[in-house]
Design a protein around this nucleic acid. Structure first.
Lengths: 207, 207, 207, 207
DNA sequence: AATGAATGAGCCTTCATTCAT
DNA sequence: AATGAATGAAGGCTCATTCAT
């Protein structure tokens, strides 16, 4: 009878413009605290205060702490998707892949610490359940792999996972070094990715 | 005059055999809780209880929660080092690299969740300060890169970081899928690594 | 940018009438526990319970145990100041002094044990830093000493300290004996004080 | 049937010289910690460690923390008594009093912080029960008051208490200022004491 | 006698969440 | 809708004390 209640999605959809703004204020506050002070300082009271909103209001829009993190992940994924979806139009796998790489680097180096922490959070089981619906990086990567011009992989799902992980970590590593040379990062990343793809067609596996 | 007191290293060296066992009990309990229930369930009371030890005893040997994690990292690094150090003797870079890969895969797939969580923890600033002294994976990787038979890298420190991250993540990803085919993982990893190394000698960097 | 955060002053100013009452409830509970059971029984949980307030609420207004004690000291000093400040108006030093004595006796015999314990606490270095701003007994005593009709002292700061200590202890001693005859106490106190003042003009110092 | 067991007196009288030395080591360690670090740092483990003795041994000689403090108080009282008892021989009250003052100043300025903290501790009810048997300062002061050359007091017990408190505090205050001029302190003290004694024979009590 | 490992009650404090206003 | 006071479970840590060796 009662509608399906999830503790991870908003209680009420913000429909009025004022509410919409409140929500994005809260999310941005959450992002800032996360990237500036890390997980330990990330708590609902702090987010509300930074957002200039009462803790009560925060709970109006987000039913709990986890919902806040999930929403943040969605927001960042969305930002990424808008930039990266064009990869689907690319005529070749190589071009699609390069586009993906460029988008990923752009996103990750834009707010590196935020991206890194969300990446970690994304592996938590609760988060995974909630986030997988969103067309994200993985889906685009999976699609790119289907192009015929790329070396075929024995197991495309595994390859997808690996490539996602690989992109994520190498860019995180760059962010961690405060590197800002996007070209350099992209170039190393391409090396790793195409190396991985070709490597699967044997030749490196000798003992 | 007073000995350097750090909140991150043991208070007392366990001298009697009884206490030695207590310490390893505690560490193993910590490991089990971490891998079975994650960070959120990881607290000193839980660890003590699982270790079958009073909370007071835990604090005799570990001055705090962080010290426990650090000690765990040291323990795992040590385990790894014993296995991987032989890589230093390898005559060629390729062989050294393969040895490293094999050790890393072995270690990481042995207790995948534990390894993954410790990898994350390792990025926290406090942990870094404490752990960097220990000859770990990075040092071995750095040494391997110096061999002449491997493609030379424009910046060896960056390459070292990248390769470490790459190994870590791909094996984590495998662990996450509960994959247990070590050969397969090693093979994909080799592909990525040697691909990365060669990729740096251009040919993939076109826009 | 961030407001000065001290572990010794209130976190929040209580703004709503409800919280104002909570704060005074907590302070009074603290006072009662202190005077009825002493320092050893004085802990945040006990205070909160006696105040009929959750421990969380206590921490909203007092960032820690010490802050509670400091606040209590301020409250009592304030009570005293209101009563004793009139001493500043007295035309002669003798009258000012007698007024001070009367106020001190009144205050100290009103809640003797509380006063005594706070006096002890006041000597702790942390407390001193926090409390010295408040115009307290010492400042009034110091002012009284400046009147010309009192025997001049070789070092007025020392004399001030001594007289404060003297008043405090003699009244404490009376409180300790559960004496309630204020006149008697005042009279003995006057003797000691004026004796001290005159004594400084020699005549008792032979070896 | 069982002998009267008190948790405040030693479990076993130390009869052998080695034990005697251990006991005094422990007491001295307790004194040092108390004066150097205050009550908060004063705990049985710390005392044992500083004494170079195992915690087990400490409990052999002192059945608990309080017993340790009591024993310390006794030791200091004893030290004082040896010095001050000669006051009993003085022919006049004035001379007895001056002797007492001198002894008190000597004792208190010798280890001012220790003396001050023990003075505070002495007011705790448990301590009082245990310590009152010891012929201490109060008994000597009481005896001195009986001399005929001193102004007679309406209530000699009260006067005794007051004078003890007065001596204690003024010397504490001097110790607190790190004053080391014993003559100055003694002189101010005499002023206060004889002032108090004379004051009781009226002349200062007008409103 | 001496040792020191072990114990655990109990204190301090935080923070996710609720609810009266 | 918004506020923010209030709650209390939960977790970190200390230290007086015991007891097996």
């Amino acid at each position: 009878m009662t509608p399906p209640v999830s503790p991870l999605r908003p209680r009420k959809r913000p429909l009025q413009p004022r509410s919409l703004e409140t929500v994005s204020c809260i999310l941005e506050a959450a992002a800032q605290i996360l990237e500036a002070q890390g997980f330990d300082a990330f708590n609902t009271n702090a987010v509300a205060e930074r957002a200039g909103v009462s803790i009560g209001s925060l709970y109006q829009y987000f039913p709990g702490k986890d919902a806040l993190v999930i929403a943040l992940m969605r927001r960042e994924k969305e930002r990424f998707r808008e930039d990266a979806c064009a990869a689907l139009q690319a005529p070749t796998g190589r071009e699609a892949m390069l586009h993906l790489i460029r988008s990923a680097v752009r996103q990750q180096l834009d707010r590196p610490e935020l991206a890194r922490l969300l990446d970690i959070e994304e592996l938590r089981p609760e988060a995974q359940a909630e986030t997988q619906g969103v067309t994200g990086f993985r889906a685009l990567m999976r699609a790119a792999l289907d192009h015929a011009d790329l070396p075929q992989q024995p197991d495309k799902e595994i390859a997808t996972d690996d490539l996602c992980a690989l992109v994520r970590t190498l860019v995180d590593a760059a962010g961690y070094r405060l590197e800002s040379d996007r070209m350099g990062v992209e170039s190393r990343l391409s090396g790793a990715i195409f190396g991985y793809l070709e490597g699967a067609s044997a030749k490196h596996q000798q003992r």
